[in-house]
């Protein structure tokens, strides 16, 4: 009996880790592409929120979840383009522009949500994605139900990791991205358009952040609340550092963070009832700060990160 219970506990725990890691993996990969091209995107928190809201609204009005995902991804890409317009085309401070994009996107998300749905005591919800078990694979003990009985978006995130690694390390475009992030001058001499490549990378990054936002409102919570992202974007930026700007390591970092978060959720649910649950919510953030303290000394950021490129200035 206890063995059965233990197994359910473990499967549930593993499944929870995978679920928590999914939006973070999308966001982390998105931020990684942007930063590999030399553009820090602090707009991530707001972009995820606006994409989550737009996707939820589209899904709830049209009844189609996949249309919702598409809208979220397009909104994410569009906001990526906005950030690129300021930081790449105009070469403005990436730090402050990112904060501006986050303020703008979150304000817009709250504004439009209130306009469309009005003020309701219970936030409207939708019937979100249902787990789509993969035949055969989902029957593997423990691993099967935890990994292969998930939402389709989870599988997409799992596929996105090797795909991102392939694109970044094995394609001409990926090479361009790494070149404009490390040495834009040399890339420019080699005939690579620094501006265009950076735009593309930041837009791709925004689209991936859109996937992350879509997952939150259409698979994880099935509703939009003002705190639906609650710092996940900021965490993703830390995870990129922790993952040393590499797709595999970044995904690993997202899994590690999800582990801590899932543990924290277990602790909330267990007998520590006299401690308010908010105390546990701090733990993943403290963990991330401490982890960064250990990792940052040896972390080597893309050399041209934060540096705008103006062709005429040599």
């Amino acid at each position: 009996m206890s063995a059965v219970f233990e197994q359910i506990f473990q499967v549930g725990f593993l499944a929870a880790i995978i679920r928590i890691a999914t939006p973070l993996a999308f966001a982390t990969l998105g931020e990684m592409f942007s930063e590999r091209a030399g553009v820090l995107n602090l707009g991530i928190e707001g972009i995820m929120l606006l994409a989550a809201m737009a996707g939820f609204t589209a899904a709830s009005l049209s009844g189609s979840l996949w249309l919702g995902v598409l809208v979220a991804v397009l909104v994410g890409a569009a906001m990526g383009a906005l950030h690129a317009l300021f930081t790449v085309a105009l070469g403005l401070s990436q730090h402050v522009c990112g904060i501006g994009v986050t303020l703008f996107c979150s304000g817009l998300a709250y504004f439009l949500y209130r306009l469309i749905f009005g003020q309701q005591s219970v936030p409207p919800s939708i019937k979100g994605f249902q787990p789509a078990p993969i035949p055969l694979l989902s029957e593997i003990p423990i691993l099967g139900p935890a990994v292969f009985n998930q939402f389709t978006l989870v599988y997409l995130a799992i596929i996105a990791v090797p795909l991102a690694a392939f694109v970044l390390y094995r394609t001409p475009w990926g090479l361009s991205v790494r070149m404009v992030g490390e040495n834009p001058r040399a890339a420019d001499s080699a005939g690579v358009s620094v501006i265009a490549t950076r735009f593309q990378a930041v837009i791709l990054g925004g689209a991936l952040m859109g996937f992350g936002g879509a997952f939150l409102t259409m698979a994880q919570f099935n509703a939009f609340t003002f705190g639906v992202v609650s710092g996940r974007g900021w965490v993703a930026i830390a995870l990129v550092v922790f993952g040393r700007w590499d797709p595999w390591r970044s995904a690993g970092a997202a899994l590690l963070f999800a582990c801590v978060d899932a543990l924290q959720l277990r602790m909330q649910a267990s007998g520590l009832g006299h401690i308010p649950y908010e105390a546990f919510l701090m733990l993943p953030f403290i963990f991330t700060i401490v982890a960064m303290a250990f990792m940052s000394r040896n972390a080597v950021a893309p050399s041209a990160l934060l540096k705008p490129f103006r062709r005429e200035e040599r």
């Binding site: 105390a279 700060i289 000394r297």
Partner: peptide, 29 residues
């Protein structure tokens, strides 16, 4: 963290906002 461990101050100060907010919530809850 920035001076001693080269931790990016933007990220750590942002993450710290969440820590303080939840600490405050834990206090009042």
């Amino acid at each position: 963290l920035r001076v001693k461990f080269k931790v990016d101050d933007v990220v750590s100060s942002l993450l710290l906002n969440s820590v303080i907010y939840y600490a405050l919530m834990a206090l009042i809850e």
